[in-house]
């Protein structure tokens, strides 16, 4: 396990200001290969902005992001995705008038998947259905072929996850994957993510459901008002005074 100590993603003092609001201020952290990192923080603490900064959807005012030692700060989102950082969206961005499996075709058309060896025309459909089958869309049912717009919310979230996984990423960033999911949907999705982690995928998970998050992650990073206030193992973070203050004790008690 020499790979486990290698840094795959490094964020160095990134900063972003929207108008007068400091969304993210001087946040730095490193992600080791194969690590499972959780990012938590109250609403508006800059979690989603941090994801946007890493994946290139927002350009930082300062600071840098490195992926496998390469500076990717100024890269366009598609280039970052092409290098192997896939993400899901908090508000799912899908093509609702397309059949569910057709949504997966789009990443399968990328040059990354072609490089890694994807099928020719026609085979992509099979690959998409295979992938959806893995995510719990039963291939023999009508579900993968229904238009995405007619599926319930929990399925949409998993469809978004399937779309991210279609890229065969090295780093997966989940932006509040469980928000809006029912308990049973969470219970069926969580093992999937644990499986990805066991297979060696590095994962960053942003979540409000602390109970589920703390069960699976190796390390937790806490943001508040755009600043990093804690970074450590779940135990360390839970005992941190500042974290308790940020959450006003409410959610920490649930733990």
């Amino acid at each position: 396990m020499s790979k486990a100590s290698e840094t795959i993603l490094a964020v160095e003092r990134v900063r972003k200001r929207f108008g007068g609001i400091l969304a993210v201020f001087d946040v730095s952290f490193e992600l080791k290969a194969g690590e499972f990192l959780g990012i938590i923080g109250p609403n508006g603490s800059g979690k989603t902005t941090l994801v946007n900064l890493i994946t290139g959807f927002v350009k930082p005012d300062g600071g840098r992001v490195f992926f496998k030692g390469r500076d990717i700060t100024s890269f366009m989102p598609y280039r970052i995705a092409d290098m192997g950082i896939a993400r899901t969206f908090q508000m799912v961005r899908l093509f609702y008038n397309l059949p569910a499996y057709k949504n997966i075709i789009i990443p399968l058309c990328s040059s990354r998947v072609r490089r890694l060896g994807a099928g020719r025309y026609g085979e992509k459909d099979d690959m998409a259905v295979d992938l959806l089958d893995d995510m719990g869309f039963e291939r023999d049912s009508y579900v993968p072929y229904k238009t995405a717009g007619s599926l319930p919310h929990g399925y949409l979230k998993r469809l978004d996850l399937a779309r991210a996984m279609a890229l065969r990423p090295e780093v997966l960033i989940l932006d509040e994957l469980f928000s809006g999911m029912s308990l049973s949907e969470v219970a069926s999705t969580l093992p999937l993510i644990e499986k990805f982690h066991e297979e060696g995928l590095s994962i960053i998970m942003i979540e409000h459901r602390l109970k589920e998050l703390f069960r699976v992650v190796d390390r937790v990073l806490v943001l508040n008002f755009g600043r990093k206030i804690a970074d450590g193992s779940p135990q360390e973070v839970m005992e941190n005074e500042e974290v308790r203050k940020a959450y006003l004790g409410i959610e920490v008690e649930i733990l």
Binding site: T55, F57, M76, P77, Y78, R79, A81, D82, A86, R87, F89, R93, L94, F95, L98, K102, I105, I106, P107, C109, S110, S111, R112, V113, R163, A164, A166, L167
Partner: peptide
């Protein structure tokens, strides 16, 4: 399909690694 997806939501397409 990719072309039409770009029209509908270019950010989602970008996150799929497509230039």
């Amino acid at each position: 399909l990719v072309l039409m997806a770009i029209r509908d939501d270019d950010r989602a397409v970008m996150s799929g690694g497509i230039n």
